[in-house]
Design a protein around this nucleic acid. Structure first.
Lengths: 355, 355
DNA sequence: CTGAAAGCGCTTACAG
DNA sequence: CTGAAAGCGCTTACAG
């Protein structure tokens, strides 16, 4: 009997299975297509119809199956998040953000680690073997120009996050590093500080120069002279912060505030100050940059600049997905640059200058 | 003409599209089924056939489409990684590991943040709305007994990572915290230290008691008396480490080594020592636990215990996927517990006792 | 604005 | 050990 044939179907949906578009369509009394249109927020659905469908979706607790969507849509988009420094304090938040973006845009996200000494060619081969369409680069890899050039040449879509200098061939999501450093320095000046030390970041990261430029511009805007002795090199490590702090605090006319280009170096400044029995913030105000876990791990907690890291990587993921899909539809898809807002976070490590 | 009808097909594979099983099958002169069997490492394929297929796969650069696999396999498995503390130093590595596991096992991974004050019921509702099958819990949530109970009752599969006390209803991946703390303490004793301070971890995390137990057992094994004054409470924060270190170093007969239950507290010990002009490790050896970024951010770098965090979360993800799928096939799938190895990492913060 | 049918790339259930 | 066909849950291309 036909009935029996029906029962011997190849695969059956398990009893407690999740509702599908077909279930929703049946419940709402419309076609699958219409359900699909409602899900995808297309405009050409009558309000009444749309409402019926939405009611059915809510009633059944329907959630679209992402595997089916991307398979049907021909939307396959494979994205690799390539990171260089595993102990980067950014990474947790960065990953969370890109994962969210991947979820929202049906992107297949893979994590790749660029091992020390591995050539750009080797990593490219690895990505190509995995059929990667696009690469997401957190710092410090977002500044690896040679790597980016080789990816671009291979036709991969690229997004640089938090770079100071976006490549012509890549999308980029940044905050205004220069403006942020300016704001922090201005904050210190507003607190009455006149001798403000600055610890620069790694010269290989393009944001470092921007942060320094922001510091210098704020000094000029505040009518303060630029004292070269107050600017010390650093490379974003705690250890380099230690060295810079020693030098700064050895100065005859020592600063009353020190602005370090990241939190790790700022934490080192606090440590050196304590070793010398200088109280923070009473004797010395200290501020950092990034608002990583380090900022709230030390005592006092650090005044710092917060970047919306998760939001930046989420957005970068979205830009990449858009680019890959646009290209696949034969549309030109040039790189896009977006700038997000930073936030100045005031905590215990800075106070008005005490005379 | 039939030819024309062919050309008017609904959707066409774009020209430069990736090879599919059909392409591989054609190239190898076998059926799709056989290709599928080779990909899935099933045994019932003749060596000669298998080799032909593998050659074709290599030649075409074939990579399976995960969306298609999970759709066809009815293998849909939605996993939520629920975290409580965003600044957890674990998280980056933890995320990377679970992402890898998700990739390997065709699991759809979602990240959920448990907001402060949110009820277990609220988060459960959120997960259910997203049709989540299983929940992965990094510390400290891996010890949230009430939460776990409510998830278990709702029928979710659960995995606790790095808990000291696995629930009967959940899978768990741990290292031997007791053994690790024993090893670290024994290492200090082996270095000649006799007065070894200990800073305990957060009492709400079950691993804390295990670490303390390991410390105490090593003392007994080394024939050393247990001095209650040498054991100070802490809660895993830098700040609590500061307080505990002050107390310990105020002792008339002060310790020559301090073992803190995590790296943040150990870093605080280093800071307090420096403030008092005690050199680490010359005047005081210090060791931590976890090998987080903090361990190598301070100077000297910390001797510590490394947990294979990424591997732990990868494995937990796998256990969860297996459980969900076994259940779906109607098989009983009890929780599984796995213990991985830790590593003692010797760095600059510990040296033999100098008399 | 709405729908019936084909197809995305795989695996499952059967059959040989 | 191997294969032909159906089906997973969606979206696309057409047609009305």
């Amino acid at each position: 009997m036909a009935q029996q044939a029906e029962n011997r179907k190849r695969r059956r949906r398990t009893p407690g299975a999740r509702p599908t578009v077909a279930d929703v369509a049946a419940a709402a009394g419309v076609s699958q297509m219409t359900v699909s249109r409602v899900i995808n927020r297309e405009m050409k659905v009558q309000p009444a119809t749309r409402e019926k469908v939405e009611r059915a979706i809510a009633a059944l607790g329907y959630v679209p199956n992402p595997a089916a969507r991307s398979l049907a849509g021909g939307n396959q988009c494979r994205l690799a998040l390539l990171y260089g420094n595993p102990s980067n304090a950014y990474l947790a938040e960065f990953l969370a953000g890109s994962l969210k973006g991947a979820d929202e845009h049906d992107v297949q996200l893979t994590i790749e680690h660029w091992r020390d000494g591995e050539t750009a060619k080797a990593i490219l081969l690895r990505l190509q073997a995995n059929r990667i369409d696009a690469v997401l680069l957190p710092p410090p890899l977002s500044d690896a120009a040679a790597l980016i050039a080789s990816f671009a040449e291979a036709g991969l879509a690229i997004a640089q996050v938090a770079t100071g200098q976006p490549a012509a061939t890549a999308s980029a999501v940044t905050i205004g590093d220069e403006a942020a450093a300016h704001a922090m320095t201005a904050h210190l000046i507003g607190l009455g500080h006149r001798r403000i030390g600055f610890i620069a970041g790694d010269r290989d990261q393009t944001a470092s120069a921007l942060r320094r430029a922001g510091y210098e511009r704020a000094l000029r805007d505040g009518g303060l002279a630029l004292d070269r002795a107050l600017i010390q090199p650093g490379d974003f490590t705690y250890r380099s912060g230690l060295r810079a702090a020693e030098t700064l605090l050895d100065l005859a006319d020592r600063p009353t505030a020190i602005f370090a280009s990241n939190d790790d170096m700022a934490a080192a400044v606090v440590s050196v100050a304590h070793r010398r029995h200088l109280m923070v913030p009473t004797d010395l105000s200290v501020s950092g940059f990034d608002d990583t876990a380090m900022a709230t791990s030390v005592w006092p907690e650090l005044t710092t600049v917060r970047q919306p890291i998760a939001e930046m990587s989420r957005l970068a993921t979205q830009l990449l997905a858009d680019t890959v899909r646009a290209r696949r539809h034969g549309k030109a898809a040039g790189p896009k640059h977006r700038q997000l807002d930073f936030t100045l976070i005031e905590r215990g490590s800075t106070i008005p200058l005490i005379r």
